[in-house]
Design a protein around this nucleic acid. Structure first.
Lengths: 153, 153
DNA sequence: ATTCTTAAGTTCACTTTCTGAACTTGTCAA
DNA sequence: TTGACAAGTTCAGAAAGTGAACTTAAGAAT
């Protein structure tokens, strides 16, 4: 089974994996959030094989999380920049960062998350927009959408 | 490069990938959150090759996100249950679910997230515990931890 | 004008991992 | 004691990943 096939699964987690499930993709994304944008930049900071990098960048553009643009000052030089769809993956990476800090860190966390509006170093938490409380893992239930069974459309 | 090697990287995102970056691992985890616990259960719901499933379950136990326990009623039957470290990955999967619903869904989302304390169907958001506001993607800056440079330990 | 350098790939032989099917081992149930 | 099931293991072929060398094109230097 290829990861690509997951994009036709009903489950949204599987569909998300069809985009970020491939080896290296999440790390490329991490570099994008650090404003790395060029082919050589990704190669230098990740040590990824060029062949794989070319494949991943192409598929990331195809699924719409990156956009490939000409560098205005140098023809034949390109920038890979996040689309809004790509930016929206930031919570996923941040959540992974938080988990890694808590469960995988050796000593102090190497990177800190700063919330610019309040200027604090923070650990983001999942929040319920209805009751305005922090979501605990055991307090969530994922249920089948009953609208799917008796749709009126 | 093997995913396992990532667990000695300084970056917590890379370290998290050393745990959930392998093919299939996230999907196995999804099934765990749905209370699937047995070898055959994973195989039936995922269609994963048995050889891979055996490898993944073993490594998930090794890294401490699953625990393998004897079924009390049937010797020779086992349950793979989430540890607290494993439960803590739930925000990562939920965040992926939210992204998939927003950007990859074909029509209505198949699964809904119910917050048991308030009994609402919700879309969790990342929240800043300092200023008590919703975190926007562009309002986050990930910075190097300066404590690493002038440590007093 | 020719050579040098840099960026962004591609190609290719080799290695590792994944896959599906068949086989094994140890319960439990009839 | 035979049959079915659960939880693996084994193995050969297919797919994906890897590192090094090669290609192509634009600018810069000589």
């Amino acid at each position: 089974m290829k990861w690509q096939d997951l994009n036709s699964e009903p489950c949204s987690v599987a569909r998300t994996l069809s985009v970020i499930g491939e080896r290296w993709t999440v790390l490329i994304l991490r570099e994008c959030f650090r404003n790395v944008a060029r082919f050589d930049g990704f190669e230098a900071s990740l040590g990824i094989p060029r062949a794989i990098l070319a494949l991943r960048l192409k598929s990331m553009v195809e699924v719409g999380i990156l956009e490939k643009t000409q560098d205005l000052t140098h023809a034949g030089r390109f920038n890979y920049v996040l689309t809004e769809k790509g930016w929206d993956l930031r919570p996923v990476i941040l959540t992974m960062l938080v988990w890694g800090d808590k469960h995988m860190a050796a000593g102090a966390p190497p990177m800190l998350i700063k919330h610019k509006p309040c200027n604090h170093i923070i650990t983001p938490v999942l929040h319920c927009p209805e009751c305005e409380t922090t979501i605990l893992n055991t307090e969530i239930k994922v249920v089948r959408n009953r609208d799917l069974e008796h749709q009126k459309t």
